Amino acid sequence: MGAAFVRWLALLCLCAAYLQGGLVKAFDFPGAVAEMTHFGMLPAAPFAVLVIVLELAASMMILTGIGRWLGALSLAGFTLLATFMANRFWEMVPPERFGAANSFFEHIGLCGGFLLVAWYDLNARMGGQAHE
């Protein structure tokens, strides 16, 4: 296995939840609309379409390398906003607080991974060293 394949596999793992989420929402659009409604994103149908397009398009940008930095920054921002909407652990009581806090910080970790992808891609495009 070459380094390029391992790097692509790592990017696929980073994008897996967004590919899965986008496809599930696309094939169960009423469920996607219900999810947007649950989180107060109204009008729900246009928000569902935007989320589907964002999750799938940004993931493909990362995997193909076409605008990788932009796709990574888009998913980092989306993840950060969604995390603050869906995992408000500070408003919960145990035992729900424990799971929501774990999920919150796992998603912050995903944001960090996407920021690293964006930094690495931008740095490589500018001819810099990726290990600064």
Score class of each variant (00 low, 15 high):
Ala118Ser: 11
Trp119Phe: 14
Leu115Val: 14
Val33Pro: 04
Ala118Lys: 07
Lys25Thr: 01
Leu9Phe: 15
Val24Gln: 13
Val6Pro: 00
Phe98Ser: 07
Phe29Glu: 08
Ala57Lys: 02
Thr64Asn: 06
Phe27Lys: 06
Thr79Cys: 02
Ala76Ser: 13
Val49Phe: 03
Phe27Asn: 08
Gly113Val: 03
Ile66Gly: 04
Leu122Asp: 03
Thr37Glu: 14
Gly99His: 10
Val33Glu: 14
Glu132Gln: 14
Arg68Tyr: 10
Ala44Cys: 13
Gly67Asp: 05
Phe39Tyr: 15
Trp69Thr: 01
Arg97Tyr: 02
Asp28Ile: 04
Ile52Cys: 09
Ala26Lys: 07
Ala45Asn: 08
Gly65Pro: 06
Asn123Tyr: 00
Asn123Asp: 01
Ala118Gln: 09
Met61Ala: 15
His131Val: 08
Gly99Gln: 09
Ala72Leu: 07
Trp69Val: 00
Leu122Cys: 06
Ala76Gln: 09
Val51Met: 09
Glu132Lys: 12
Leu122Arg: 14
Met1Val: 14
Cys15Gly: 06
Val49Asn: 01
Ile52Leu: 10
Met92Trp: 00
Pro43Met: 08
Ala57Thr: 14
Phe39Trp: 15
Leu115Asp: 02
Met60Lys: 00
Leu9Gln: 12
Ala124Leu: 11
Asn87Lys: 13
Glu91Thr: 14
Gly31Gln: 10
Leu122Ile: 11
Phe78Asp: 05
Ala76Asn: 10
His131Asp: 13
Thr83Leu: 04
Phe104Lys: 03
Ala100Val: 00
Ile52His: 08
Ser59Phe: 02
Gly112Phe: 05
Asn123Leu: 01
Phe39Leu: 13
Gly21Ile: 10
Ala100Arg: 04
Phe27Leu: 14
Ala16Cys: 13
Met126Ala: 15
Thr37Cys: 00
Pro30Val: 10
Gly22Met: 04
Lys25Asp: 06
Arg97Phe: 01
Phe29Cys: 06
Leu75Ala: 08
Leu42Ile: 14
Lys25Ile: 00
Gly21Asn: 11
Asp28Gly: 11
Phe104Ser: 03
Ala3Gln: 13
Leu54Pro: 03
Cys15His: 09
Arg97Pro: 00
Leu80Asn: 03
Ala76Ile: 11
Leu23Cys: 13
Met61Trp: 12
Val117Glu: 01
